[in-house]
Design a protein around this nucleic acid. Structure first.
Lengths: 334, 334
DNA sequence: GTGAAAGCGCTAACAG
DNA sequence: CTGTTAGCGCTTTCAC
C-alpha cells in the first residue's frame, strides 16, 4: 500500500494525499476527509524510508553511553529517551564500552545511519589527550553533538553539566566543619566530571590545610564489584592510612565504604562519616542510609533535550550550561 | 557525495560502484581497486536512507521496555544491544512505561519506523486479558516479535524464558527444608513471570501443607521506593502476621526486607530468612549479603538474539525456549 | 565484467 | 485548492 494506491482509491493526486498526510494547509475539508477515510480504511502508513530519503532525516538521535546498565547512565538514558520521543524523535542506543576504539566505531556507525544528532551520556567520552577527542570534533562537523556531564569546547558541540566541583567542594567543607580532619577521597574515574569532583575536594582540603599524601585514593577495579572496593579499603587501613571520613565519587564506592565500616566494627557516622555521589537508589539500600550529592540528573537531561531541539530547529543555543547540585543529608554524616 | 560522483570520478557506472560497495562478485580486481581508491579518497559512505528504501530494511531492531532504568531491564538492554550490534543490527529503544496505552503507541511507532523485529524486554507486556495482548499479535503480523521472560502463543512471536516456577519452587523447598514454616511471599507484580514465580512458591507451600491466608503479600507501590516497602512489612507485623522467612519476587523487595529486619532488631538469618530474585548487584549492597535466584539473564539474551537472527535469516526457529535458574546462596539464609 | 535504466515511495516546487 | 513532475541515492534486473 503506497501513496499511489491511496491517491487512486480516493480519486485525487499523490500530492494531495501527501498534503493531508503532512497536515499541510490548503486542502479542502471535503477532499481531506475523503482521503483520510481511504487511509483509515486501508490502515495505510507512509513508508518511513522513502520519507527519510526525501527529507534527509528520519528524526532519530543517537545515544552513546559506555554501559547502559550502570545505575546512573541508565537513569539518564531513561530520561533522555522519554523526552526525545515526546519531541517526536527516536533514539538509537549504542553501548560503547569504555574503550576509545569502540567509542569511535559507534560514533561512525551513528553518523553512517544519518542520525540527526548524537548525545554522549556520561563524562567518560572526553579524554585527557586532546587528540583523543578528535573523534568527537569530527562527528560534530556532521551533526550536533551533545555532552551530558562532560565538556569540550569545539564547534557544534554543546555541553550540559552539573557543577561537580562546587558540589564536592561544599560537601567536603561541610564534613570539615563537622570537625573531621582525616578525610579520604575515594574515586574510580579520571573522566571529565571525575576530575572536577576531585578538584573540588582538593580545593576544600587545601584551603583548610588538611590535604595529605594519602587523602586521594583511587580504586581501579570493576565498577560493580562492591566486595573488591571494600577489600581495597581494608588494605588501606592495614597499611596504616588513617581516616575518619570518606567522600566517595560515586554511591557504589560509598556503599562499599559502609560495608567496610561494618566489617571493621566502626560506627557510622560516629567513627566514620561517609558521603556518596549521585543520590541514586543505592542511597536507600544501605543501613544507615547514605548522605549523597544529588546532581539533578533529570533537570540536566531536560535541558539537554531542550537545547538539542533548539539547535535542530535552527536556533542559536548556549554552548555550555551548568547546574548546581545539592547535598542530600541522610544518616552517614554527623 | 553520492554514488554518481564516485562512479564519475572512477570512470565506471554506478552499478559497478554499487557492486564493489556490496562486495558483489563479478568485478575485476582492477576496477574494484580503482573504485575503492576513489571511495577512500573522498571518504564516501552510502546514504543509509536510500539504501533502506531500496532494500526495505535499515537493519534495526526495536527494543521495548517499561523502564530502562530498572536494574534488571537495564542489564537486559545492555546485553541485547551489544549482541545485536555484533550482528550488524542497531537498536531503537522505547521506554514505554507500564500503561497498556503507551505500550501500544510505542509498538505502532516502531512498526511505522519499519524495524526488522521487536524485542519486548520483561514480562509486563503480557496481560491477563487475552484481548489486551492483541497489540502484540497484530504487530507480529508485520515483524517477528521476541519476548524476554514472557510467553504468548501466537504466530511469529518467539519466547525465551527463565523457568521461574521451578526456581521459586526449589528456593521455597530449600527454605522449608531448613526448618521454616511461616514463610511470606512478598511480590509486586502480576506479570507473566510474576505469576509463574508465585505459582512456584504456592506449589511448594501447598505440597508441605504450609500455605496460609497471609502467606501471599502484595506490595503495590513504586518499584524503587524501598522505605515504602519496609513500611509495608512493618504494618504487616503490627497486624500480627507471623513470619520467619521472606521470599521476595525481586531483589529490591528483599532488600527492603533486610531493612525491615534491622529496624525490628531481628537477626538475619537467625530470626528471619530472606531470599531475593534476580541476583542483581543489590545482593552485594546489603548486610548481610543477599541469597538470591539468578535467572541467567545473559544466557537468555544471547539465545534470544541468536533466535532472532535465525528468523531474520529465514530459518525455522523454536517458538519457546526455557532456561533454568540457580539459587545463589549468601548470608540471608540458614 | 560492465553499463543503462527502471524502480523503491515520498516530498516539494511549479503550474494551473 | 489541486495535479504534474522532478528528484532523493541506491539496488537490481537485463542487455551487451
Amino acid at each position: 500500500m503506497t501513496i499511489y494506491d491511496i491517491s487512486e482509491k480516493a480519486g485525487v493526486s499523490i500530492a494531495t494525499v501527501s498534503r493531508v498526510l503532512n497536515g499541510s494547509s490548503n486542502v479542502s475539508e471535503k477532499t481531506k476527509k475523503k482521503v483520510l477515510d481511504v487511509i483509515n480504511q486501508y490502515e495505510y502508513t507512509p513508508n518511513a524510508f522513502a520519507r527519510g530519503l526525501g527529507l534527509n532525516t528520519m528524526k532519530t538521535i543517537g545515544i552513546m553511553c559506555a554501559d547502559s546498565s550502570d545505575l546512573y547512565l541508565a537513569k539518564a538514558i531513561y530520561y533522555i529517551e522519554q523526552k526525545l520521543r515526546a519531541n517526536g524523535y527516536d533514539s538509537i542506543l549504542c553501548c560503547t564500552g569504555y574503550e576509545l576504539e569502540t567509542k569511535m566505531s559507534s560514533m561512525n556507525l551513528l553518523i553512517t545511519k544519518k542520525v540527526d544528532g548524537i548525545i554522549l551520556v556520561g563524562s567518560n567520552f572526553i579524554y585527557e589527550k586532546e587528540s583523543d577527542n578528535k573523534y568527537i570534533c569530527d562527528a560534530a562537523t556532521q551533526v550536533p553533538l551533545m555532552l551530558l556531564n562532560a565538556a569540550l569546547d569545539a564547534p557544534n558541540v554543546y555541553c550540559v553539566v552539573s557543577d561537580d566541583f562546587t558540589s564536592m567542594y561544599d560537601a567536603t567543607m561541610e564534613m570539615i566543619n563537622a570537625g573531621l580532619t582525616d578525610i579520604l577521597y575515594y574515586y574510580n574515574s579520571y573522566s571529565y566530571s571525575g576530575k572536577r569532583k576531585l578538584a573540588g575536594f582538593k580545593a576544600a582540603m587545601e584551603e583548610k590545610g588538611l590535604l595529605k599524601n594519602h587523602s586521594l585514593q583511587y580504586y581501579g577495579g570493576s565498577h560493580e564489584d562492591i566486595p573488591a572496593m571494600t577489600e581495597h579499603l581494608k588494605k588501606l587501613r592495614q597499611k596504616g592510612v588513617p581516616f575518619k571520613g570518606i567522600i566517595a565519587a560515586d554511591d557504589t564506592l560509598a556503599l562499599a565504604s559502609i560495608k567496610y565500616a561494618k566489617e571493621m566494627k566502626l560506627k557510622v557516622p560516629e567513627d566514620l562519616s561517609i558521603i556518596g555521589y549521585n543520590n541514586s537508589m543505592l542511597a536507600h539500600c544501605c543501613d544507615p542510609e547514605l548522605t549523597s550529592i544529588d546532581n539533578k540528573l533529570e533537570t540536566l537531561c531536560q535541558h539537554l533535550i531542550t537545547t538539542l531541539m533548539g539547535i535542530l530547529g535552527g536556533n542559536e543555543m548556549p554552548k555550555k550550561t551548568i547546574f548546581s547540585g545539592e547535598l542530600i543529608k541522610r544518616d552517614t554524616t554527623l
